[in-house]
């Protein structure tokens, strides 16, 4: 296990170097440049020249990349072209919001998804199964933008049970829970649908196996058959889906953050791309890539914990 962790962490280094290079090149290939976005439509040729010089954009691409990567290797992600704020600081302000929202969403998704998936499987071909399948289809199909807006109108404007938008309190307080509730439901619904479908098929596959029949024949209570005997084996693909979804969520949830005015990494990234804020985009992408690798590593570790047959030698 320790080997696996060390190996994965070492693999991160070339991966991040590769990602930083690809992001750097693709940003420079895209039309538009940071000076033009800082100067705006009113900037004259002289204004743009001064800004380019100030940002070091007149240097060759190679020099610019070396300068950037040299800073990164020393733990300095640089400064935003647009706001002149430290990239690390900008990300660190926003990351807790994205993390809290991701955790809340994955909890919503797991509770609904696994619950609905199990019910759907054990009540296969009943009205509950149909309801769950249709619900899952709706969950995947409804765009977050629409669902978020509807939840706001209904629960925040009409009934005023929840705040409309923003995160101002820690997630363990009542106000914090209320602030996270609507965005977590909005975001969790799509993931819940995927998890439900995966859980249903995994449980259906396991539930027909001989050892389940044996357990039932032994007189084990049905609840224990499902939760202890069946779920343990069925969880591997479900954990994979949950882990992947969590990784994606940590990468920023642009639409939900936008609709609920949450100051998260996704919004930071999209604003930075729009402003051609190269350093900020690179910093945010490196963070997201690192988190994605770490979450996947965590999932691999969880496999071994859930299923003792899995060994990482």
């Amino acid at each position: 296990m320790a080997n696996l962790i060390v190996r994965r962490l070492l693999q991160l280094i070339p991966l991040l170097l590769g990602i930083s290079f690809i992001v750097f090149i693709s940003l420079h290939l895209a039309p538009g440049d940071p000076a033009s976005m800082i100067g705006g439509p009113t900037a004259t040729k002289e204004d743009l020249a001064s800004i380019r010089e100030d940002l070091g954009l007149n240097d060759s691409l190679f020099t610019q990349y070396l300068r950037y990567i040299g800073g990164v290797l020393q733990g300095d992600l640089g400064y935003s072209y647009q706001t002149q704020q430290s990239v690390t600081e900008a990300i660190m302000i926003r990351f807790p919001n994205t993390f809290n929202l991701s955790v809340a969403s994955i909890i919503v998704a797991t509770v609904i998804g696994v619950g609905a998936g199990i019910i759907s499987a054990i009540k296969q071909n009943t009205s509950l199964d149909v309801l769950s399948t249709v619900g899952a289809l709706a969950g995947i199909s409804i765009p977050n933008f629409w669902l978020g807006s509807m939840l706001i109108l209904l629960f925040a404007v009409y009934w005023q049970w929840f705040p409309v938008a923003g995160i101002t309190s820690p997630p363990w307080t009542m106000q914090g829970i209320k602030e996270l509730a609507l965005p977590a439901i909005t975001l969790g619904t799509g993931s819940a649908a995927l998890i439900a479908r995966m859980t249903r098929s995994a449980v259906l596959e396991v539930i027909r196996q001989d050892y389940i029949r044996t357990a039932r024949a032994k007189g084990v209570r049905e609840k224990n058959v499902i939760l202890l005997h069946c779920m343990r084996n069925a969880m591997i693909p479900v954990i994979t889906v949950i882990g992947l979804n969590f990784g994606f969520l940590l990468g920023g949830t642009i639409i939900t953050e936008q609709v609920f005015a949450i100051n998260g990494v996704g919004r930071l990234l999209i604003q930075a791309i729009a402003a051609r804020d190269y350093t900020m985009v690179q910093g945010a992408v490196l963070l997201i890539a690192t988190l994605f690798v770490l979450v996947n590593l965590l999932v691999d570790i969880l496999y071994a914990l859930v299923d003792p047959r899995i060994r990482y030698e």
Binding site: S149, I152, L153, Q160, A165, G166, V259
Partner: peptide, 18 residues
């Protein structure tokens, strides 16, 4: 000065007096 990128959300905030 509160950042609310989505206009429809800003309108909801206006309607609730926030």
């Amino acid at each position: 000065f509160r950042v609310v990128p989505e206009v429809s959300t800003a309108i909801s905030l206006l309607e609730t007096g926030e």
